[in-house]
Write a protein that binds this DNA or RNA. Structure first.
Lengths: 250, 250
DNA sequence: TCAAAAGTGTTTCGGATACACCCATGA
DNA sequence: TCATGGGTGTATCCGAAACACTTTTGA
């Protein structure tokens, strides 16, 4: 569970349980990619540590819709790639929660089980949105994430593992990159997620063999060296690959 | 959510919410293997359809422990291989629940989100345990599972998909077979889970290359043909492979 | 003109697949 | 003795990995 404070007001504390499912929250690990760095969107309360953006589940809302809502509130994006990856339910996962006197006697004092979702978004399209109760909402490099609220570091780690596994079966990049991108950019994305280097030429061969990319006439200019081609995803084939998985894998 | 009726008594209906987390349940897809058939353990209420064995989450209990408890109640087994695979949270997933008048006005009338676990157990060691509220608790062939309660068919399907994926990264069989088993038995297990035939000789080479099996001196006698060797898992190497994953995959 | 990045091959290797032969067993 | 299933070995293929050369660009 995240975003207790951001959501807290008197009414929410008293009547939240009339609108939301008790004991249940959704946390979103929002991945972005910028300047050859994998990023994650974190939220900071006015008082307290950084945490994952999260929310609660309305009484007539699916888990997925709850995650979509949370995501929209933070990034103002719609049609985001979203994947459920794990449910965290250790009874003591919310370390330090009991000390929060504001919650005493409210439904938020209870133990929460949280459903983890990860999202892949286009960094350039996101205007991070702190709400009125939180100080900041910004991107962090994946390697330099600070100590987070509760078990959120663990959730983040698990999200990254899930993403790595999914990488082998699903085409990613469509969601993390701009519409047009270069092959080196896509390669760097894979390298960052997998946390290991990949041979430039073999990568190109493999990714092109998936037949989900279209090479454009344009090249990317402005770089200090030979200008690389721009590519975009073949939407139809990309969708098909998403549905059916990548035969070869990665 | 499953096992509403099996657990129902007046006290549970009235006071269940004092001991269990509301809106939250755990469902277990228990896989077994017998006579070259992948099986799943299903429960039948005295009134109503077949369903997955499930249970509720105690207030100070982890999701995993809740699943372990459920499993123990049905199979009397401990130390079971257990894997969380998905959380099912569609608000209308419990189709037909509203019609159940017994639940009216109780905490069970509410919508439930259920966490799906699958388990791999040694068929020969299980004595299926219907409790006093349920008629039957028996093994079903995976291909001939009947129409189940709520969205349990969907849950079962998803469990099977998860098992298939995990198969590539984790050594299974240790949990589904007896201590000693033959190579053809293990092969049939893989074939049933993957739902496709595998070449006998290539299978043997591959599985042996994983170095997690030990061939025993004994052979299995009584078959109508050449007696196959018996194998067992090398416990240490098996555990290592479970932790670190199978390099080659399957 | 030159260093660095990008485009486009070829070679090599290992694992996966396909396939063949012999052996043991109970009917 | 023979049909069937089980143990073991070899040839082949394909994708992955390793590697080389040329081209373009701004500094």
């Amino acid at each position: 569970m995240a975003k207790i404070l951001p959501l807290i007001d008197a009414d929410f504390l008293r009547h939240g349980q009339d609108h939301y499912l008790r004991h249940l929250s959704v946390d979103c690990v929002i991945f972005g990619f910028h300047e050859n760095q994998l990023k994650v969107l974190l939220l900071k309360w006015k008082v307290g540590p950084w945490c994952l953006p999260g929310g609660f589940v309305k009484k007539a809302e699916s888990l997925q819709d709850s995650a979509i809502r949370t995501l929209h509130e933070r990034t103002a994006l719609k049609n985001i790639f979203l994947q459920q990856f794990y449910a965290f339910g250790h009874p003591l996962r919310e370390k330090g929660k009991a000390r929060d006197t504001k919650l005493r006697g409210t439904w938020l004092e209870d133990r929460f089980v949280t459903i983890g979702y990860y999202a892949l978004v286009d960094y350039s399209k996101v205007k991070p949105h702190p709400d009125m109760f939180s100080d900041e909402c910004t991107w962090w490099d994946i390697e330099s994430v600070p100590e987070l609220l509760y078990d959120h570091n663990e959730i983040l780690t698990k999200a990254l593992e899930a993403l790595r596994l999914d990488l082998h079966y699903h085409p990613i990049g469509y969601n993390l990159l701009s519409k047009k991108f270069t092959m080196p950019e896509l390669q760097k994305l894979y390298e960052t997620i997998l946390a290991k280097p990949v041979d430039r030429r073999n990568f190109q061969k493999k990714i092109l063999s998936l037949k989900i990319l279209v090479r454009l006439k344009e090249r990317k200019t402005g770089g200090a060296h030979k200008s690389p081609y721009l590519y975009k995803f073949d939407e139809a084939k990309y969708r098909k690959a998403l549905r059916e998985g990548l035969a070869g894998g990665f």
